[in-house]
């Protein structure tokens, strides 16, 4: 029965007596309000991702403040301008005039999810391969959708749920299915990539893992990660801008 207990927490990885690299690992155990918690690999990866973004932002801020308007901007400043302008353009194309203020949020979301998704390349376990992270991101979108719904449509936001009276249950389920499907889409994609790479590195001998997994990394981490980042941001923008119509 003792092995049974261990199995519940670690699943088949424990059963096969092999340490696969794609399971969430707990490092530092601590006690918070009577609940035993772990500092997991997700936390460490998310802290590294956020530190990278903060350092980049500080450098960007310094470069912008020191910029001389009379001279041509340097390479770094040009890259920052390109990033900001493309996010602004994307937001404007999908949300129109009312969504101008959302480019801050969309840009942050884009940078965070993109860096999280491709962090598998640098040996981290992607934070977005943990359902807790993607569900939190989707909950933010859910709150934004309904905040803007009440802001722009007032009580019609509620009465729209009962529009064809027969479809009321389906409308209500549909509202709650939005964040769940968004978070599961991101989680499932990144988790599938992480699982496949973990199985590859765990099961084949070391000399077979030398150069060619780069092809799989390029598809599973970079391509899939970029597409899912774009899809998550796109769906957030579309769902929010749907509430703008009167």
């Amino acid at each position: 029965m003792d092995t049974g207990r261990a199995f519940i927490s670690n699943g088949m990885a424990q059963m096969l007596d092999q340490d696969f690299s794609f399971t969430i690992k707990g490092y530092l155990r601590y006690n918070l309000f009577g609940v035993d918690l772990n500092l997991t690999s997700t936390h460490i990866a998310i802290i590294i991702v956020m530190a990278t973004l903060i350092v980049f932002a500080l450098f960007a801020n310094r470069a912008i403040k020191k910029a001389n308007p009379d001279e041509a901007p340097g390479t770094f400043l040009n890259i920052i301008e390109l990033m900001v302008e493309s996010v602004d353009k994307l937001t404007h194309a999908n949300m129109g005039e009312r969504g101008a203020g959302f480019s801050n949020y969309i840009g942050t979301l884009f940078a965070f999810i993109l860096l999280s998704n491709i962090s598998g390349l640098f040996g981290l376990r992607p934070p977005t391969a943990d359902y807790g992270v993607t569900f939190a991101l989707a909950i933010i979108t859910f709150v934004l959708i309904h905040y803007n719904g009440f802001k722009y449509q007032k009580m019609k936001h509620i009465t729209n749920l009962f529009k064809p009276i027969i479809l009321t249950p389906i409308n209500i389920i549909g509202e709650f299915a939005t964040p769940i499907s968004m978070s599961l889409r991101l989680f499932g994609n990144i988790m599938a990539g992480t699982t496949m790479m973990g199985l590859l590195y765990g099961l084949v001998p070391w000399f077979l893992t030398l150069a060619w997994p780069g092809v799989l990394h390029a598809y599973l981490d970079v391509f899939s990660g970029c597409i899912q980042t774009y899809v998550f941001c796109m769906l957030t923008m579309v769902f929010i801008s749907n509430t703008f119509e009167d």
Binding site: G4, F7, I8, G11, M12, A13, T23, S181, L184, R185, F187, G188, N189, M191, A192, T195, I227, Q228, Y230, V231, M234, L235
Partner: peptide, 28 residues
Amino acid sequence: LLGQAVAETTGLYGLVIALILLFANPLY
């Protein structure tokens, strides 16, 4: 690409079920 990524979701639900059954089996 956006449409394909959205269409992928139903397959990912199956994948999540498979991963739960293999690595975090609630029945065991």
